[in-house]
């Protein structure tokens, strides 16, 4: 029997292969299922254009934190990935770019030193090769199991984003479900253009923590992508159906004019 999943929103039983064909959007109610990093890359990069970088970087138990090794092994087994982010180069609509794509299936997309290092490296690569960066965020935030080293990745990546920006290069972030904590409070919110997937949870503090702090239930729609748009923290909602086309258009609009032509202009 074919693998099926139940839609979290409308409860419809969906065949996995049908769902995949629909870019993991529920055909009944339009609910966005989470995508793995590989599914995301397949969806937005031109066919066979993606070339992965630093694919063998994997984490180890840097501060000897209880059960971290087991958690890492489990995450690797379940996802077949080495870490919670995949980076590389690709073309979208023929336009070259670099990509980082986070994967919530790997320890909730949490950011430790390897995630920090891979994202930093892709920004440095993009700066050297004068390429734009498109980043898909989804993360519970900094990874507790690597202590303060995880926290410092927020600063490290922000520095790399800044140097990329100083070089006059484009950085687009697409915030996907969920983008929270230290990722929101650093590179997710540092894009020249910030897009969000409809319905995605995007915020700094976790909802349970806020509810405990203020002693009341949060309003409907709090911290959703639509909420962020309304409060001025993202440029647009970007649906999956039009995502490759919209990204290609944004890349085209920011195409780097070669130095020589710019001087003559």
């Amino acid at each position: 029997m074919a693998e099926t999943v139940k839609c979290k929103k409308c409860g419809a039983e969906l065949a996995m292969d049908v769902l995949r064909k629909h870019k993991k959007i529920c055909p009944c109610c339009g609910y966005y299922f989470r995508m793995t990093a590989r599914e995301r890359i397949d969806m937005i990069a031109d066919r066979k254009s993606f070339k992965e970088l630093d694919k063998d970087l994997s984490s180890y138990d840097v501060i000897r934190f209880p059960d971290y090794e087991k958690k890492l092994e489990k995450a690797m087994d379940e996802t077949g990935e080495k870490e919670a982010v995949i980076t590389g180069t690709a073309t979208i609509g023929g336009y070259p770019c670099t990509l980082f794509v986070m994967d919530s299936a790997f320890m909730m997309g949490s950011m430790g030193t390897v995630v920090g290092e891979k994202i930093t490296r892709i920004f440095e690569y993009a700066t050297e090769n004068r390429l734009p960066v498109i980043g898909f965020t989804c993360s519970g935030g900094a990874r507790m199991q690597e202590g303060v080293l995880s926290l410092m990745q927020m600063a490290k990546i922000s520095g790399a984003v800044r140097w990329h920006s100083n070089a006059g290069l484009l950085y687009i972030t697409v915030l996907t479900d969920p983008t929270t904590g230290g990722v929101t409070a650093s590179f997710a919110m540092e894009g020249d253009i910030i897009a969000a997937e409809p319905g995605a949870l995007i915020g700094f503090a976790g909802q349970r923590v806020i509810e405990q702090t203020i002693g009341q239930k949060l309003p409907e729609g709090f911290q959703k992508a639509e909420f962020q748009l309304e409060h001025g923290f993202c440029d647009m909602l970007m649906g999956r159906m039009e995502m490759p086309k919209t990204l290609a258009n944004l890349l085209a609009l920011h195409r780097q004019i070669p130095e020589k032509e710019r001087r003559n202009a």
Binding site: G159, R162, A185, E190, F204, I214, G232
Partner: peptide, 24 residues
């Protein structure tokens, strides 16, 4: 950082991110 409804509405994450970016 303070965690509450107002802080989220006014972009707690964005405010921290901007400081990190600008301070470099």
């Amino acid at each position: 950082a303070y965690c509450g409804i107002g802080a989220e509405e006014r972009g707690q994450g964005q405010a921290i991110a901007e400081n990190l970016w600008e301070m470099f």
